[in-house]
Write a protein that binds this DNA or RNA. Structure first.
Lengths: 249, 249
DNA sequence: TAAATAGTGTCTATAAGACATTATCTC
DNA sequence: GAGATAATGTCTTATAGACACTATTTA
């Protein structure tokens, strides 16, 4: 491939344009990443919240999150959005990115959702297996953090529009229960069918027939999505068979 | 409810904090809104693209979009994200917001997706009924714009990551075909069952059995989602019954 | 009347809902 | 053996796929 004179002129024009370019003068919003960290412990859906140390909403509970790191110029444009979410998750919970299921949820960008300045937040949700919850160091980033039962939040006023973000996350997760493997992100590495069913009931808020649910799980066993695993639950009656997820998680 | 001394102190503290607050000094990204404007004309899925007049990607085709207006301070924080999308749509197509179906798609935020500076773009998709396509003034915003058949774009290199954004939009729409009324946004105000079926086939890229599809539509008629409408198509064989969507659209 | 497409009907497979019954484990 | 829960089975209903067949309109 040869460069014509026109090609060279255009390349030069482009270099010049980019060199001369100054990021637009009009104001920009701040961009944050907020994470709805969810787990299920004691048959209860819980979300991780941090207590705000500064205004606005000082002393109130909020989603963990923080500013997208943007770098300082053309040379360094900072971190990818997904990387920012993984970083925030690790900073606030101590969980390495591969230990939680992290997915973008929705972007919230109403004016005045932050009284200080214009902030657009890209919300993610993270699902943490209950057996990993002990690894979560509450108050990692020098911020007070703790798990809240989601239903109990009706009595609490959260900072910003974070209550709406949590609601949207749960709605999204519920809608994905039936056509994804998302529910395996909310049980321990080994689990029983009744435990799985409980996850479903807690997320949807509706009871699920035991027999019908088993039938679905039976198909997953046939399809080698899950397999029997060693181990036993300590119960006061008949213990359920223990399974594990087949693919790496 | 009475204010205690502590309440008053806290309120004062808050006012002071907000007055003193200076938006963070660390750099911010630009935030844009890009819109995947789709329609179906002549049994072909088409997307509206605009030709870039400036570097980078000068002369290449790109999604219509623009910067989120942020206002200039605390007093005015600018427009909601959704409003920005509706505004951009109208600016670039002339379509009033209520004439197209507009929904947030996904937020794309990889570093270096724009060589000039850090740009996070919140992508939306807009579905335009084919009978409204004539209202779209190509090149509205003094920019050259035109409709492209989506399959033909495989040969074209689009600006930025816009090809990936279009792909994601189509994937999302395909996934919503079966549990939403989204396909009615891609047929004229009155339509026939074969026309509806064609929409489905074009979006999914897979053939759909006529009888089976009719059966589904028949259920929608029973459920009063659509109803028969006056009119007739000019055809060279038996003309199909014409329907309209019941709810306001 | 021929061509073409609209529209109908049927058989089968899959999966969910509702609900009854049996099996197995712990104490 | 009692209590409790796991596990299985059955009947019904809803829906999709595949495919054959009939009806109606235009030229």
């Amino acid at each position: 491939m040869t460069l014509t004179k026109a090609d060279k002129r255009q390349a030069a024009e482009k270099r010049e344009f980019l060199a001369r370019y100054r990021p637009a003068n009009f104001p920009r919003p701040s961009v944050t990443v907020d994470i709805v960290v969810l787990t299920i412990v004691d048959a209860e859906l819980r979300v991780l919240l941090v207590k705000r140390k500064e205004h606005p909403f000082k002393g109130q509970w909020a989603l963990p999150g923080g500013f997208l790191r943007v770098g300082d110029g053309k040379k360094n444009q900072g971190e990818d959005l997904d990387v920012a979410a993984a970083r925030e998750l690790e900073e606030e919970t101590g969980l390495k990115p591969n230990l939680a299921y992290l997915e973008q949820l929705y972007t919230f960008g109403k004016a005045d959702r932050d009284p200080r300045m214009r902030v657009v937040t890209v919300a993610y949700y993270a699902l943490v297996r209950p057996d990993l919850v002990p690894l979560v160091r509450s108050g990692g980033d020098a911020a007070e953090a703790s798990w809240f039962a989601v239903p109990s939040l009706r009595k609490t006023t959260l900072a910003f529009d974070h209550a709406a973000i949590i609601a949207k996350a749960i709605e999204r997760i519920a809608s994905k229960l039936d056509y994804s493997n998302i529910m395996f992100k909310l049980v321990p590495q080994t689990f029983t069918i009744p435990e799985l069913r409980s996850v479903r009931e807690i997320i949807t808020g509706a009871p699920q027939d035991r027999g019908n649910f088993r039938r679905r799980v039976a198909r997953m066993i046939e399809d080698k999505i899950i397999e029997q695993a060693p181990g036993k639950r300590i119960t006061t009656s008949k213990p359920a068979t223990v399974f594990r997820f087949c693919q790496k998680r």
